[in-house]
Computed example of a mutant assay.
Amino acid sequence: MPSPEINIDHIAKLARLALTEEEAKSYKAQLSQILGHIDQLSSYPLDAEPSAHAMPVFDVVRPDVSRPGFTQDEALANAPRRVMDQFQIVKVMD
């Protein structure tokens, strides 16, 4: 499939670029190469089924089993400051 004619002046106007003749020729050649590569890539058959991962992914989680947690004294054992069995922190907002 041949690439359509590139209107570099129109593209520059849309991008609000002021191009010299030399820049326009250079960009037109570069865009032609890019579109040629895209045409080449689109010629490959893509019969693969779309997927989010290359390999099947399954959630691997441990069973939700209840177990004992810290007591209040254990949780506050290393607290630098305690007030009424709670952590005391520095005021961060007025």
Rank of each mutant, 00 (worst) to 15 (best):
D59N: 11
L19R: 04
P68N: 10
L46E: 12
Y27A: 00
D73S: 14
L17V: 05
D64W: 08
F58G: 02
A52K: 13
I38T: 13
F87I: 03
R62L: 15
R81K: 15
K13T: 02
V83P: 02
A52G: 07
E21W: 07
Y27P: 00
I8R: 03
L17M: 14
S32C: 08
H53C: 09
P68Q: 15
V90F: 04
Y44R: 11
D94R: 09
A52F: 14
A24I: 00
N7E: 08
P80E: 03
V57I: 14
D73G: 07
T71W: 13
Q72D: 10
P2Q: 11
V83D: 06
K25C: 06
S32W: 07
K91H: 01
M93S: 10
Y27E: 00
S43D: 11
A79D: 05
G36F: 05
V57F: 04
K28D: 01
Q33N: 03
E22W: 04
D59A: 10
K25H: 10
I11K: 09
A18V: 01
N7W: 05
L17E: 13
F58P: 00
S43T: 09
F87L: 10
A24L: 01
D9G: 08
V61M: 10
R82P: 00
D73P: 04
R67K: 15
A77S: 11
S51Q: 07
Q40F: 13
R81S: 12
